[in-house]
């Protein structure tokens, strides 16, 4: 197998609080191949954003990476000194967040911000950097880019601003982009345009993307593979079609039935009882066990690891044929 662009291995992130140490990520592992869009889905608090922040070294104290590693094109990056990490961000890893205003400075013209970023990461002179900025704005679908480049962020609509942020993320031709809920704040019709744009750009440039969202529909349409997160862990990873059409993990199965569809015929939505646990009270063994309809003795004592099941990885004891029988007896 060729080397993945990004490999996250047993990544663990903890927040030290007055009430003890909270583990927001617990041994999260996944790979992203070149040109691939990996969707990361999960309900609020699943750990999606923390995963993104950890990859780019932006976990603020009292949070810290407590274990595991992040490998970018073969090179370990989670232990880089802060100065080198800062250089890596923007240059090799681009970022797109939910609120475009967090990435844009309201006081500067859009062009100034693009030119500055381009000049930080390349050795283009000011005139060439400006030309490149105009070309990028054109590429992300800003009409009349040679005029709009001198506008301020507030003069752009929400969708247009998000396009500018995408242009900003592309400035240094990064090999990897983290997009955290890039369309959540946008209306459906604009969301569709942004998704199409991200997909097209990645295909043309061979950029890999980690697309974080709570919207399974967005994933269905955009991602090649998908990782489903629950309570700081990866519950299931696999090709998007398999995970959506034939989910293996009881949580993913429930989730698929819980989502109303514009084509489905379900009279009643599947109901998963309860809600995601707080970090301070994550159940022992399988974190999903209080909500799982298929729970058995082993689930309360032993955490299920990701195992391969037909080209698809799942963390659930139901699929661990070798030891399933034994535990029933032991329990």
């Amino acid at each position: 197998m060729t080397q993945p662009v990004l490999s996250v291995q047993e990544l663990t992130v903890e927040f030290v609080t007055r009430r003890g140490t909270l583990r927001a990520l617990d041994k999260v592992s996944f790979d992203v191949a070149r040109g691939e869009v990996l969707g990361v889905v999960g309900e609020s608090g699943a750990g999606k954003s923390v995963t993104g922040s950890a990859i780019i070294g932006l976990i603020d104290p009292p949070g810290r990476i407590a274990g595991g590693k992040v490998v970018l094109s073969g090179e370990r990056v989670d232990n880089l000194p802060p100065e080198e990490m800062r250089r890596l961000r923007g240059k090799r890893i681009g970022m797109i967040f939910q609120d475009p205003l967090t990435s844009l400075n309201p006081l500067y013209r859009v062009g100034e911000q693009l030119v500055e970023t381009i000049q930080t990461h390349t050795d283009l002179n000011a005139a060439d950097a400006r030309k490149r900025a105009i070309a990028l704005l054109d590429e992300v679908g800003i009409p009349a880019p040679d005029r709009r480049i001198d506008g301020y962020p507030h003069e752009f609509s929400g969708g247009m601003r998000q396009r500018v942020v995408i242009a900003l993320a592309l400035c240094a031709e990064p090999e990897f982009i983290i997009a955290d809920e890039p369309t959540t704040a946008l209306d459906v019709s604009v969301q569709a345009q942004i998704i199409t744009l991200i997909k097209r750009l990645c295909k043309e440039r061979g950029t890999s993307v980690m697309l974080v969202t709570h919207d399974m529909g967005v994933i269905a349409e955009t991602a090649d593979r998908v990782a489903v997160m629950y309570a700081g862990r990866v519950a299931e990873v696999g090709p998007v079609r398999d995970v959506i059409k034939e989910p293996l993990h009881p949580y993913t199965q429930g989730l698929m039935g819980a989502i109303p569809s514009i084509t489905g015929e379900a009279e009643r939505l599947v109901q998963i009882p309860g809600s995601m646990p707080r970090l301070s009270s994550i159940p022992k063994g399988c974190a999903f066990n209080p909500r799982c309809s298929k729970v058995f003795a082993r689930c309360h004592v032993e955490r299920p690891e990701l195992i391969d099941v037909g080209g698809h990885q799942v963390a659930c004891h139901l699929y661990d044929q070798a030891s399933a029988g034994k535990t029933e007896i032991a329990a």
Binding site: V188, S189, V190, Q191, A192, Q193, I195, T196, D215, M216, G217, V218, A220, E221, T222, V240, R241, I244, K245, M256, I259, S261, I262, T263, G264
Partner: peptide, 17 residues
Amino acid sequence: LDAVPDLAMVGKPREGV
């Protein structure tokens, strides 16, 4: 309706909006 991302959309191209 063309714009809504949906589970049934896996791998399907969408109409331009």
